[in-house]
Amino acid sequence: MAKLVATLASTHHPFYLKATTAPKEKQIPQAAEWKRKVEAYRETLTAAKPDILVMVGSDHFHQFFLDNYPTFLIGKAPRYDATFYNEEREFGIPKYVLEGHEDFSRFMHEGLMEEGFDFAVSHELKIDHSIICPIITVRPDADLPVVPIYTNIFVPPLASVKRFWNLGRAIRKVLEAWPSDKRVAAIGTGHLSLELGGPRQFGPSGPDPEFDRKAVAWLANGDIEAIFENVTLESMVQSGNATQGFLNMILMMGVAGPVKADYADTLDLYHTMEAYFTWYPDGEKPARVANARVEETV
């Protein structure tokens, strides 16, 4: 059977590449630290030696629109183009072509249906920055095949907190049942507190630093019970109109299970707090992965 070798969950800041490759005199003050943290986070994936990636993100009205917006969707194609014109324009993200893996996509699709998740499927999927940002940060050579999964985090009504967690659990179960000797890593991105197109956008920090501090501790501690007690679709919106992207972080913790993250790191930036988490199954943390722990008390 396939082996899950690492689960990674992070925010996806579309300006990482631009911020860290701009001429030195134009870089934001945190650029060097940001790059250092991202490269340390990248090492948590590299050390796990994955062969294939299950990638969880959310289409930001690039391919999908309100005429037909899927709650959960899986890509099943031999290859995926990535990065839309308006993402190149706004974020300076280059185009990519990622290899797919149709057999694994089919297995995941059928298995997730079996588990009670009625996924939509796309055989011609162009991937957006929710999946390309983590390629840039943790696998910049873009040299591994991917199975892309999209969730709806911003077209109401959304699936519940519990549903996202359970989907993570189901993804773990199905991928480990895949009859293959491949080493699989699951990588997902979302947000902590975030405001877009509202009065709290682009402030000196994320719109709700208190939520961010708690959310980071919940993820670092694997404390799903605290998330169930404290986080609802309504409460997330109080922390910023785009905070429901936190649902993808919950999903990824669902893949890992209710256990402490082996690696957790954060970076306070203007507009948002960045956060990086890695879990290894059965505590099999590779020796070369640095120790990064955030303050875990709420």
Binding site: L66, F154, P156, P157, G197, G198, P199, R200, Q201, F202, G203, V237, N241
Partner: peptide, 22 residues
């Protein structure tokens, strides 16, 4: 621009925003 955009909406701080639900 982004900061001015936010400022022009500052009368919505602390209030429930108009819903984007259709």
């Amino acid at each position: 621009f982004q900061l001015e955009f936010g400022r022009k909406l500052s009368h919505w701080l602390g209030r429930e925003y108009p819903s984007v639900a259709l």
